[in-house]
Amino acid sequence: MTGDNILYDIAIWLVPLVVAIVFHEVAHGVVANHFGDPTAADQGRLTFNPLRHVDPVGTVLLPLVLAITHAPIFGWARPVPVRAERLRNPRVHMMLVALAGPGMNLLLAVAAAMLVALLLGGSGQEPQGAAAFLTDNLVNFLLINVFLAIFNLLPVPPFDGGHVVEGLLPRPWAAQYARLGRFAFPILVVLLLVVPLLFPQANVVARVVSPIATFVATGLLWLVGLGA
Results as ranks from 00 to 15, higher is better:
1 M>H: 10
4 D>P: 01
4 D>H: 14
7 L>R: 01
12 I>M: 11
14 L>D: 00
17 L>M: 07
24 H>L: 11
25 E>Y: 08
27 A>R: 01
30 V>G: 01
33 N>D: 15
33 N>P: 04
34 H>D: 03
34 H>I: 13
35 F>E: 00
35 F>D: 00
37 D>I: 07
39 T>V: 11
39 T>F: 05
42 D>V: 09
44 G>V: 12
46 L>C: 12
50 P>M: 07
56 P>C: 10
57 V>A: 12
59 T>C: 08
59 T>A: 09
60 V>G: 06
60 V>R: 05
60 V>N: 03
62 L>W: 05
64 L>R: 06
64 L>T: 08
67 A>H: 05
69 T>C: 09
71 A>S: 15
71 A>E: 09
75 G>A: 12
75 G>V: 10
76 W>I: 06
78 R>D: 00
78 R>F: 01
79 P>D: 02
80 V>S: 01
81 P>A: 11
82 V>D: 06
84 A>G: 11
84 A>W: 03
86 R>S: 04
89 N>E: 14
92 V>L: 13
92 V>H: 10
93 H>P: 11
98 A>G: 11
98 A>M: 13
100 A>F: 12
107 L>I: 15
108 L>A: 08
110 V>S: 06
111 A>E: 01
111 A>S: 12
114 M>L: 14
115 L>C: 05
117 A>Q: 04
119 L>W: 00
119 L>V: 10
124 G>L: 09
131 A>Y: 01
132 A>R: 14
135 T>V: 11
135 T>E: 13
135 T>C: 13
138 L>H: 00
140 N>K: 10
142 L>P: 06
143 L>E: 03
144 I>M: 10
150 I>L: 12
152 N>L: 14
154 L>G: 03
155 P>K: 03
158 P>C: 07
158 P>W: 06
161 G>H: 05
164 V>W: 03
165 V>R: 02
165 V>T: 07
165 V>Q: 02
166 E>A: 15
168 L>W: 07
174 A>I: 03
181 G>E: 11
185 F>R: 03
185 F>K: 01
188 L>C: 05
194 V>K: 09
198 L>T: 07
200 P>V: 04
200 P>E: 00
201 Q>V: 13
202 A>K: 05
203 N>E: 04
203 N>G: 07
203 N>K: 05
204 V>R: 01
204 V>D: 00
207 R>C: 04
208 V>T: 06
211 P>R: 08
213 A>H: 04
214 T>Q: 15
217 A>V: 01
217 A>Y: 00
217 A>I: 02
218 T>E: 08
222 W>Y: 07
223 L>V: 11
